[in-house]
Design a protein around this nucleic acid. Structure first.
Length: 214
DNA sequence: GACCAGGCACATC
DNA sequence: GATGTGCATGGT
């Protein structure tokens, strides 16, 4: 079986099980960007609390965030963990967003995908997964997001070697799947939900949608 | 109480 | 270039 057929097969096993997920869970592109930074090595439930804090004070806005003191911002995002570091990273990103694009999502979307990716990666605190999440889920750009679940699931099922790095893994998915924004969006969402629902809890593995794969 | 979570930058060898 | 470490809350 060709890799491209395997990848499509995996996708439909998950999709048929969970149904469409329509990621990212967020009301606006800017909220998605903030969420992408806050969820670094952190469970989404904790991130939601931090975002709720910002929403309640009507601070989920690039200019308002930039004007907060470090202490104020850190206190608001405390539930998401690593709050000192993440407050700094949020500021770095928002500063970039405002000075490069005047805080405009539409302006940012005018950039060429890989050129913008390189610019995002120069912002301190934005690594590959965070950059790609922003590109795909906030800006609707067709790039495949890799994360810990992707590595774990596909190496356990012997589709990829365990030591494959981020760029190689991303290339593997993108060369074997049609370049389709909606597919990339849905595929990563399905992987994350599968990963956090089943692959961490051994007793549930027998009902995982991927149980018969590889 | 240990272990984990939708990473990343930085130090050290 | 590979490997190790700090960052921190909240759920299981």
């Amino acid at each position: 079986m060709k890799n491209r057929d395997k990848l499509i097969d995996f996708f439909y096993k998950m999709y048929d099980h969970f149904g469409p997920l329509h990621w990212w869970p967020g009301d606006s592109p800017f909220e998605v960007m903030v969420g992408a930074i806050l969820t670094q090595n952190t469970s989404w439930a904790n991130v939601e609390k931090a975002i709720q804090n910002l929403k309640e004070k009507d601070l989920l806005d690039p200019h308002k965030l930039l004007n907060l003191s470090h202490e104020e911002l850190a206190a608001l995002i405390k539930p998401s963990g690593f709050f000192n570091i993440k407050a700094r990273r949020l500021k770095e990103f928002v500063n970039f967003f405002i000075h490069e694009y005047n805080g405009s999502v539409e302006k940012m979307k005018e950039e060429e995908l890989w050129y913008l990716r390189n610019k995002l990666l120069k912002v301190k605190g934005i690594g590959k997964e965070t950059a790609d999440s922003i590109l795909l889920y906030a800006l609707d750009m067709p790039i495949f997001v890799i994360d810990a679940y992707t590595k774990r699931i596909f190496s356990r099922h012997h589709i990829i070697p365990t030591d494959m790095d981020y760029d190689a893994l991303q290339h593997f998915f993108m060369e074997n799947l049609p370049q389709d924004l909606r597919l990339y969006n849905e595929y990563h969402a399905q992987i994350v939900l599968t990963g956090k629902t089943y692959c961490r809890k051994k007793p549930l593995c027998n009902i995982c949608p991927l149980k018969d794969m590889g």
